[in-house]
């Protein structure tokens, strides 16, 4: 049994490695292409290129990937000393959200022609994924910026220990539930045009995940179940757990993006709970007017948090 598992794992790892290396299309003369400030694109060559060739603007063309028919205006080409780094400056600011395509014609190096190639300039994919993660965690925090999951949020943020327990359980469930709903949406609901069953399917999957985690945890690790079991039921009552699959479906995210969003949403909830419970533990000792005791003051505090989280909005990473 164990041998089989090892063999399987090895096969998967090998496939993954093959897949990764397969992306590389042999040695290329242009090593790297990046955005530079607002107007520039920097190309790094594997070896020195001819200065005469590089001086000619006509050898380069730049376009946004979805608009291959519209070439952008190149204002100047500059070759750094050493002749391996070349900066293209464009007349207008680049829209860096979009990947750009740079076509380089008849590269000349050491007097030898090396043919033409096209390279894609885009923000790095990991950066993009990280941006989604951080977006869900801070900038678009589900509790303080999207106002979801409030019932459970206010219910479980009285004590730090409860808050952390709830946050961890929730993160665990949401990642599983989101990934499952992503699979089901992409491979069943969408191809068969059953979009209108979204709600029923997603809520069913969430309940199923909760039930499964409950059963498995009870059998495998009773100690852990004792610590986190009580929060499992509450997870279903949290609208974030159903909002995330709906957002994934609306935005057509791929699997990694979905994973990042779900993880960000879960950890964001944990963060919100932790912050809130820290304040509420101290509020216990404060002299709050009678009418405000309990939930009302908690709402005011949450409002202050929401205001400060607005400071994150508009922040862009990468």
């Amino acid at each position: 049994m164990r041998k089989k598992v090892i063999a399987l794992t090895a096969a998967v790892v090998m496939l993954a490695v093959l897949g990764l290396t397969g992306c590389e299309t042999g040695p290329r003369f242009i090593k790297q292409a990046d955005f530079d400030e607002t107007h520039g694109i920097v190309l790094t060559f594997a070896g020195p290129v001819d200065a005469d060739w590089a001086a000619d603007k006509a050898n380069f063309s730049v376009n946004e990937k979805p608009d291959p028919d519209i070439l952008l205006n190149i204002e100047s080409v500059r070759l750094d000393p050493g002749n391996t780094r070349l900066t293209l400056t464009l007349a207008d600011a680049l829209n860096q959200e979009q990947p750009h395509q740079v076509v380089v014609k008849d590269i000349m190096a050491d007097g030898k022609p090396l043919g033409s190639t096209a390279v894609t300039v885009a923000r790095s994919y990991f950066g993009h994924l990280f941006a989604i993660f951080l977006g869900a965690l801070l900038i678009q925090n589900f509790v303080f910026s999207k106002y979801l999951g409030l019932c459970v949020f206010f219910g479980t943020s009285q004590k730090k220990s409860t808050a952390v327990g709830m946050g961890i359980t929730f993160t665990f469930v949401i990642v599983f539930a989101s990934l499952m709903s992503w699979f089901l949406y992409q491979f069943v609901l969408k191809p068969y045009r059953l979009d209108h069953l979204q709600i029923i399917v997603f809520i069913g999957l969430v309940s199923l995940t909760v039930q499964a985690v409950d059963t498995i945890l009870r059998k495998i690790n009773p100690a852990l179940f004792k610590a986190f079991g009580v929060y499992l039921v509450l997870v279903i009552a949290n609208c974030i757990v159903i909002a995330v699959p709906l957002i994934l479906a609306d935005n057509e995210y791929n699997m990694f993006e979905s994973l990042m969003l779900a993880l960000g949403a879960g950890l964001g909830f944990l963060l919100a709970l932790f912050l809130m419970s820290s304040v509420r533990e101290r509020l216990e000792f404060a002299n709050v007017p009678v009418s405000y005791r309990g939930l009302p003051i908690a709402f005011i505090v949450a409002g202050l948090f929401a205001l400060s989280f607005m400071g994150f909005s508009g922040m862009s990473i990468f």
Binding site: G303, A306, L307, M310
Partner: peptide, 17 residues
């Protein structure tokens, strides 16, 4: 502003109390 929702709900609850 979105954050004002929290404040208002808090105030209203206090009024009810």
């Amino acid at each position: 502003l979105p954050a004002a929702g929290f404040f208002l709900v808090g105030f209203m609850m206090a009024v009810f109390n």
